[in-house]
Simulated scan of single mutants.
Amino acid sequence: MRLLVPPGVYRPQEDTRLLAAALRREGLPRAARVLDVGTGSGVLAIAAARQGAAEVTAVDVCARAVLTARLNGMLARRRIRAVRGDLLSPVAGERFDVVLANPPYLPTPPGRYPPRGAARALDGGRDGRVVLDRLCAEVAAVLRPSGVLLLVHSALCGVGPTLALLTAAGLRPHVMERRVVPLGPMTRSRTDWLRRRGLLAPGQETEELVAIRAQRP
């Protein structure tokens, strides 16, 4: 699709494609309401609209990303409600059939958190889980009964904790797909630190992405 991605807005990468594939496999219920958390360019929100969602809401903490998602929605001739705010706060009290999430998950060296600018779409604190843990704990509140969360992140920040937190929140999670991809530029820039922490093996030039599905009973 024709896509506008200005500086400072997360450009779709392998994690975006993995989540888009998970959405295609999931399918959407009739008259579905979809929420895209951390929308960035809005590409996943547009994908949901193209798959027949009746209503799509896109949220991002970055004002430039919100504007970009709106513009890309217009370019794609798809109606998207894009709003600025912190994680799920802009949609408090609303309920959705499907929530899509590609949160910041890159482990971040000391002194670089909280991030600024484009790094806000990537940096997730020392363990990569600052935003991810909040999302896991809070997302059930915006899911309808039988609603589904589709989530992507790197195995560098741990898969077990994600599954445990989603289970504790009352959801039924499982790993849909694992995909090994080359390290991205930001990850490569901190490989020495990641290796000292034991998160990357010596000579390792790839990481594993996981797509997780979690359903509310």
Score class of each variant (00 low, 15 high):
Gly158Cys: 07
Leu44Asp: 01
Arg30Gln: 15
Pro114Ile: 02
Pro182Gln: 06
Met176Asn: 07
Gly128Pro: 07
Arg126His: 08
Leu100Asn: 06
Pro109Asn: 04
Pro103Val: 12
Asp133Thr: 14
Arg179His: 10
Leu28Phe: 12
Pro182Ala: 05
Leu150Ile: 09
Glu177Cys: 09
Gly147Asn: 08
Ala49His: 05
Ala32Cys: 09
Arg78Trp: 00
Arg78Asp: 00
Glu207Leu: 09
Pro173Trp: 12
Ala140Tyr: 12
Val159Phe: 04
Val148Phe: 06
Val9Thr: 01
Asp86His: 07
Leu194Glu: 04
Ala155Met: 10
Val83His: 00
Arg64Gln: 10
Leu183Gln: 09
Val99Pro: 05
Gly198Trp: 01
Ile80Pro: 01
Ala63Pro: 15
Leu166Gly: 13
Arg197Glu: 13
Pro12Arg: 03
Arg84Ser: 01
Ala168Thr: 11
Pro145Tyr: 11
Arg116Gln: 11
Ala21Val: 08
Ser189Asn: 07
Pro202His: 05
Asp127Val: 02
Gln204Ala: 10
Val83Leu: 06
Thr162Ala: 14
Ala49Thr: 04
Arg84Val: 00
Leu87Ala: 08
Leu171Gly: 13
Ala48Phe: 05
Arg112His: 07
Gly38Val: 02
Arg78Ile: 00
Gly42Met: 00
Ala121Pro: 05
Val43Arg: 01
Arg216Ile: 12
Ala82Ile: 00
Gly85Phe: 02
Leu67Tyr: 01
Ala140Thr: 14
Leu135Thr: 07
Glu55Ile: 04
Met176Ala: 14
Gly158Gln: 07
Arg172Lys: 15
Val139Ala: 08
Asn102Phe: 03
Gly117Lys: 00
Ala54Gln: 15
Gly40Cys: 00
Arg144Met: 11
Gly184Val: 09
Ser154Arg: 07
His174Ala: 15
Leu194Trp: 04
Arg24Asp: 13
Glu205Pro: 02
Pro107Trp: 03
Arg188Val: 10
Ala201Leu: 10
Ala121Arg: 06
His174Ile: 06
Ala53Arg: 12
Val59Trp: 02
Ala47Gly: 03
Val66Phe: 01
Thr191Met: 13
Ala155Gly: 14
Arg195Pro: 03
Met1Phe: 02
Pro202Lys: 06
Gly124Asn: 04
Ala119His: 11
Ala121Ser: 14
Leu23Arg: 09
Asp60His: 06
Ala45Glu: 01
Arg30Ala: 15
Arg179Lys: 13
Ala140Ile: 13
Asp123Pro: 04
Leu3Arg: 00
Pro115Cys: 04
Ala69Cys: 02
Gly170Gln: 13
Glu138Gly: 09
Glu26Phe: 12
Arg24Lys: 14
Gln204Leu: 04
Arg2Phe: 01
Leu165Lys: 15
Val9Ala: 01
Leu18Arg: 10
Pro115Thr: 04
Asp133Arg: 14
